[in-house]
Nucleic acid binder design. Structure first.
Lengths: 170, 170
DNA sequence: CCAACATAGCTGATGTGTCATCTATTCCGG
DNA sequence: CCGGAATAGATGACACATCAGCTATGTTGG
């Protein structure tokens, strides 16, 4: 029961600037993608992952891990993308529970058409304003925080199936 | 018509790590807030802004600027928060178009109850894994990018209503 | 073999964000 | 003082995200 360690002034500023920056940045990226390609950032990420495989197909759970998305978000999103003809679902013969997500021709054309403009915007709005050192730092920082997040998920600190040990009566 | 400048390997890694980190981090913060206080991160930010004013009231457009939210998002969010009793809307006598958003007692109690746990989680998941230098640099980086975003909005590069000559002083 | 459990995936309800559009008021130049 | 433009704000439609819960198949220890 220690005293609350509030954020000091610098932390406060950094935190708020960071949150605001991210919001603004992704809003801009989304608008650019939407306007020029009819895709959202989420669509784009899904399509990129698929397009990076040799045959443009992945199991949903692979996609899920690659994107770090919630399973259900992915499923809903794939349904919408399927309706728009960007991807197709196929059954999986090796695993009766499974499925495949397959990039359609339209899907591939959509990413390929979107990519140059998107990368250009990411550069203009983000990378071009940063030094190499800053980019390196950001990468390190992100990786550090990610590691920390993973670790604290595994043991007790986050979601855990309420005391699987020592259940009275077991 | 220059050649496309794709992201190099380091940029690619930094960018993807960054996007993933942000997603995971905010997901965790949202869950913690939701679980312990029944608030979302968005709710929390609104309430914090209100609670930082002397009388717990702001004009929607002030809130909008403070949060850098879309006007319509704010309006919808306020409606939902109003239904949950966290804020109240009042008319504005000085400006017939205007309104006030007022923190209710329940709203104030909610932020105050939420704050310690939230700050603690932000520390545990984020700041405690970073050095002071990293925090400083993140603040700088965010501010730089924000400036860049603002600049490129004002002149031609993004949406602009033809001739916006009329800056609201305030 | 089979009961318990884990894994893969889908779905419906509900809360959230964006876009386009709408009303009402205020501001401002002629 | 009037008409057009800017400002403040709300709203409906729709896309998106999360949660809880569901089915079906695979895996494994007894």
């Amino acid at each position: 029961m220690d005293a609350i360690r509030w954020l000091d002034d610098g932390e406060q500023r950094a935190w708020r600037a960071y949150l605001r920056m991210h919001g603004q940045l992704t809003a801009r990226l989304n608008r650019q993608l939407q306007a020029e390609s009819g895709l959202s950032l989420a669509d784009y990420e899904v399509l990129v992952h698929l397009s990076e495989t040799p045959d443009g197909r992945l199991r949903p759970f692979e996609l899920q891990r690659g994107l770090s998305w919630e399973q259900s978000r992915l499923s809903h999103h794939l349904t919408r993308m399927q309706h728009r003809g960007l991807i197709r679902r196929e059954g999986c013969t090796e695993d009766g529970r499974g499925a495949f997500v397959v990039l359609t021709g339209a899907g591939r054309r959509a990413v390929e058409a979107a990519a140059p403009g998107h990368v250009d915007t990411v550069r203009k709005l983000f990378f071009d304003g940063l030094t190499g050192d800053q980019i390196t730092l950001l990468g390190q920082l992100s990786t550090q925080v990610l590691t920390r997040l993973d670790e604290s998920t595994e043991d007790g600190l986050a979601v855990r199936p309420a005391t699987p040990r020592h259940v009275p009566g077991c």
